[in-house]
Design a binder for these strands. Structure first.
Length: 823
RNA sequence: GCGGAGGUGGCGGAACGGAAGACGCGCUGGACUCAGGAUCCAGUGGACAUUGCGUCCGUGCGGGUUCAAAUCCCGCCCUCCGCACCA
């Protein structure tokens, strides 16, 4: 019988569906293991790029079950979001129907691939029993003053017709549709994630099992800066400008002040002066510029002198006040002291507008001159022109100047973060409604918890026009205040979908809980997630938001752990033609076509064999064929040799074993086990291929006696058990054909016997002066003395050693011998 | 500019400081076949030698440490990714 993967896979797919095999088991005597894949946005179908993620997870989950863990391996749907709404606009299908159609399709694809999800725990973020709790969390955040509304310049995507969080703007473009983002002054809801900036930064230290690069990206995103906040009084007015600097040591070199165009003082300082019109136009121009124009390379800095002066509190000099587009209003105080001698940007601006430059730090070895300065000197050095701080090492002066400023009451030590509050309002329909009300008497109030969820109405005109589609609904916005009974209006914006996914990992522990977002006991049992796997694209988005949520829940006593994900693995993309698979590029390979041609097991094994899972890999149909051949070979060994299998090999094998065969079998068990542990699936499969070739060699042997048969039987059984997590359909099929009744899924993972790995003799390469000149074969336990003798005895080595003085002989146990001779 | 990852045969990729190129693809030759794009066996980094066993060169480039470097150190080059006027 040839390898008829279709009927085999259909058969097991059906059996698994009809059984409870993949339901989560909790045996109190066993340790727990929560394995989680980032749940997908159901946008139609999965391609092989997605599949890699879930196959990795399935191997780990199956392996952990076999290792005797209670495994939680759930799957759900990040089901709110724009694509559903866009599809609805385009094709006239309701987002809900579109979403659930997609879910059904992807769910079918998962089953096609034989992924061992516990579907009894399936969740979708767009169902009221889920988003009720998303809203509930919003209310908790609001009650703890961590959700608030403010008018601020926010990122607006003109294509998606909604605001975006900072994290969702990539290089000035919308993360989702690549449209250049513009700034708009809008009243929006924010989560005060900045209140957690320090802890989100500090606790990265706890995440020892996270990839360094993800932690670095989060660290950079949080962007902590320590420095001095100082007051520069405005000449002739009763107010001062607050600036922030990380270089207090350069404060004597501050020769002018720059306000961000949006800074309120910018217009105020020129009000009623001939400059007003010009400055107003400048500010408007800068505001309208997209992030891209503003950060474009080669862009010239632009600014205007405001015809005002401020007092540098250290030099007591009057320095001009400017406004310029290179100062950002959103960061720190939106105003800077400009030190052209020691800051690249200030230097560029000063040169452009002919502003004074003063050196206040000299490098230790030579003396710079203002007029010769090619680039700003930003390194540490010795203070000059710095009053009482002259002669000090600049690194020390930083501290001294901060202290001095604090003593004199002109400034204070200050820490700023680049991290901004998380803007979570979205002017779109397909999301969880923000559960807030506007009452003319009570003000902005939350919907009482017992009235949640605020249901998303179904009969809505989705056309995006700027405000949320919910605002145009005939009844949704209108309600009565639950506190005073007045006529009130509902908030009509919905929440960013990243809010939905900031707590889903908790819901999986008790998805049916209806009194609370999750069952506390279940969360305490399963959480934190032991292994989390997903794409690198969420390094600062989802992963930062989820950490923030978890910390908030920790603070209000709902969970006892400070971090949600213990171990993180970020897998690489699968590319075709050098770029990620995507529908718009038309370079998609779907699981259906591979399963149709080669079967699910081949699809699975190939996505693992393709290369190291943390790196991108190019899809190759030739490679798929190679894996298909391998599985065929495995199948044939069994199919053609069942008669040689002895189910009682275990009791017979001691005392009559073929050491070399058992060594191969046991070293394969060891290699595959260790490779799974360290996520080296490609080499695990390579060693299974080698193992299979070895077994083929054994079949060539003429004498298939009892000894041969028991070793062969052990090998067959180990081969199928080691292969099963990778190719579960074939695993079950061959396991059954070996006469087993229980699913292979429930079998204990094989262990190797270390003593069987030893050989009696070993062959060691012998180097002479660093070059391999021959080999020796000695007993495995040979002493250094015996090895030495054997080296000298070797005919081949004699020509290299004869007549030379042996200066050194290095013997690396079980690896090699290195001889150093004169000349 | 800053930060990160990476550069190994024709290709994807293996290699606790210890025989570079496992495994797979491709290619070459052979076996079995009416036939094979099925299967099996053998070979496959380069140059030279091929009357053996071989010799030399090879992991982006240049140095260094070491008995021994793809691996460690120093200095460059290139590719990809993230951040990007954050004061």
């Amino acid at each position: 019988m040839p390898y008829d993967f279709k009927s085999i896979e259909d058969k097991w797919r059906r059996r698994w569906r009809e059984s409870d095999l993949y339901l989560t088991r909790v045996d109190p005597s066993k340790p727990k293991f929560y394995y989680l894949d980032m749940f997908p946005y159901p946008s139609g179908y999965l391609h092989m790029g997605h599949v890699r993620n879930y196959v990795i997870g399935d191997v780990i989950a199956r392996y952990r079950v076999a290792k005797g863990y209670n495994v939680l391996h759930p799957m759900g749907w990040d089901a709110f979001g724009l694509p559903a709404e866009n599809a609805a606009i385009k094709h006239g299908i309701h987002p809900q129907k579109w979403t659930f159609d997609c879910i059904a399709n992807i769910r079918r694809q998962f089953d096609l691939l034989g992924i061992s999800f516990d579907w009894s725990r399936e969740i979708a973020t767009c169902t009221p029993d889920y988003y009720k709790w998303t809203q509930w969390f919003f209310v908790q955040l609001f009650k703890h003053d961590l959700a608030y509304r403010k008018k601020a310049p926010v990122n607006w995507c003109p294509s998606c017709q909604t605001v975006l969080a900072n994290e969702q703007v990539k290089g000035g473009r919308c993360e989702r549709c690549d449209t250049p983002v513009i700034k708009k002054d809008l009243e929006q809801w924010f989560f005060r994630i900045t209140a957690y900036a320090e802890r989100l930064l500090q606790d990265l230290e706890l995440l020892t099992e996270w990839p360094e690069r993800v932690k670095i990206m989060q660290r950079n995103w949080i962007g902590k800066s320590e420095g001095l906040e100082a007051e520069f009084p405005i000449k002739g007015k009763d107010i001062s400008i607050t600036i922030f600097t990380t270089r207090p040591d350069t404060i004597y070199g501050a020769t002018f002040i720059v306000l961000a165009p949006e800074h309120p003082l910018t217009l105020e300082l020129v009000k009623g002066t001939p400059l007003e019109q010009e400055v107003r136009e400048f500010v408007e121009k800068v505001k309208l510029r997209s992030e891209i124009d503003r950060t474009a390379m080669e862009r010239k800095k632009e600014g205007i002198f405001l015809n005002c002066y401020a007092l540098n509190p250290f030099t007591k000099e009057d320095i001009p006040i400017w406004t310029a587009d290179y100062v950002l209003y959103e960061y720190a105080t939106g105003a800077i002291m400009a030190v052209p001698a020691h800051d690249e940007r200030d230097l560029e601006f000063a040169r452009q507008y002919g502003l004074p430059i003063r050196i206040v730090i000299q490098p230790p070895d030579n003396a710079l001159k203002e007029e010769e300065l090619q680039t700003a000197y930003t390194e540490p050095g010795i203070q000059v022109n710095s009053g009482i701080f002259n002669g000090m090492w600049s690194e020390d002066a930083k501290e001294a100047i901060i202290r001095y400023a604090e003593d004199q009451g002109i400034g204070k030590r200050k820490v700023y973060y680049k991290l901004r509050d998380w803007c979570i309002s979205r002017q779109r329909y397909w999301g969880a409604p923000i559960p807030m009300l506007y009452c003319p008497k009570c003000g902005v109030v939350p919907v009482p918890e017992d009235q949640l969820p605020v249901l998303l109405p179904e009969d809505v005109d989705f056309q995006p026009t700027g405000p949320s589609p919910l605002a145009r609904h005939h009844s949704f916005p209108f309600t009565t205040c639950p506190y005073c009974g007045s006529e009130a209006r509902r908030e009509t914006d919905t929440m960013d979908t990243f809010v939905d996914s900031s707590w889903y990992f908790l819901r999986f522990t008790s998805p049916k809980e209806d009194k609370a977002p999750f069952d506390k006991q279940a969360v305490e049992y399963w959480m934190p997630v032991d292994q989390y796997v997903g794409g690198i694209e969420h390094a600062v988005l989802h992963l930062l938001y989820s950490r923030f949520f978890t910390k908030f829940l920790y603070d209000i006593g709902l969970v006892s752990f400070p971090e949600p994900f213990l171990r993180l693995f970020t897998q690489g993309m699968i590319t075709l033609g050098g770029s990620a698979m995507s529908k718009s590029r038309g370079n998609v390979v779907t699981p259906e076509e591979i399963c149709e041609k080669f079967g699910a097991d081949t699809a699975r094994v190939y996505t693992l064999f393709i290369g190291p899972p943390d790196q991108d890999a190019e899809w190759s149909e030739r490679g798929v064929e190679g894996v298909f051949r391998f599985l065929n070979r495995v199948y044939r060994i069994f199919e053609e040799n069942f008669s040689l299998y002895d189910p009682n090999w275990r009791v017979k094998i001691e005392g009559m074993s073929d050491k070399e065969k058992r060594r191969i079998t046991h070293s394969t068990i060891k290699k595959v086990t260790q490779d799974i542990e360290r996520f080296h699936f490609n080499t695990a499969i390579a060693s299974l291929m080698e193992f299979t070739s070895s077994i083929y060699d054994w079949l060539q042997e003429a004498n298939k006696d009892e000894k041969w048969r028991v070793c062969f039987s052990e090998a067959l059984e180990m081969l199928v058990r080691l292969l099963a997590p990778f190719a579960p359909f074939m695993g079950e099929e061959l396991w059954e054909k070996l006469g087993n009744k229980d699913s292979i899924y429930l079998q204990q993972w094989p262990s190797w016997r270390e003593e069987l790995l030893q050989t009696e003799t070993i062959t060691l390469p012998v180097q002479v002066n660093g070059k391999v000149r021959g080999t020796i074969t000695v007993p495995a336990e040979a002493s250094d003395e015996e090895i030495k003798e054997e080296v000298l005895r070797q005919e081949r080595l004699r020509q290299y050693l004869e007549g030379k003085e042996i200066k050194k002989m290095i013997i690396v146990p079980k690896r090699l011998v290195s001889v150093v001779v004169d000349n």
